[in-house]
């Protein structure tokens, strides 16, 4: 019985820290109903900065107009924990970007995920940060 309760408490703990979260500002500025898909976008810069890294990319719309997009992602420590690094994206990479666009309608927003040319996918941290990866959250609680 005690073991079961410990396991249940551990699950509850993991759920608690897995809740979607944004760092020091809310998500109210972004339209979270449906991500905008930027197919064949060209990375122009990947700024590995605080408080949030910025992905900059050029996207050519159906009419041939080039849009200059900027999107933020999870903080650098949190992103590192799910495999991101300063070199994960490079200028010239042709990728498909998914982004929650700002409600202002400008080409800015919260990064969701990137699909590389070889099909590899890397995601944002927004459904939770390290998920307890740096701590033993399941130990003894």
């Amino acid at each position: 019985m005690k073991t079961k309760l410990v396991i249940l408490a551990s699950i509850a703990g993991l759920l608690a820290i897995s809740c979607p979260t944004f760092a020091h500002h809310g998500a109210a500025a972004y339209d979270m109903s449906k991500p905008v898909v930027l197919k064949d976008a060209v990375i122009t810069q990947f700024a590995w900065i605080n408080p949030h890294p910025l992905i900059k990319a050029d996207y050519k719309d159906d009419k041939g107009n080039v849009q200059h997009w900027i999107m933020e992602m999870g903080s650098t420590p949190a992103s590192q924990l799910i495999g991101w690094s300063r070199t994960s994206l490079k200028p010239g990479d042709v990728v498909t970007l998914y982004v929650w666009q700002a409600k202002t309608g400008l080409p800015v927003g919260r990064f969701n995920k990137v699909v590389f040319a070889d099909g590899k996918v890397m995601r944002d941290t927004q459904t939770g940060a390290d998920n307890g990866g740096r701590a033993d959250t399941g130990v003894g609680r």
Partner: peptide
């Protein structure tokens, strides 16, 4: 929202 990859362990 975003199904996330299972981290490999840190």
């Amino acid at each position: 929202r975003a199904p996330r990859a299972v981290p490999p362990g840190y």
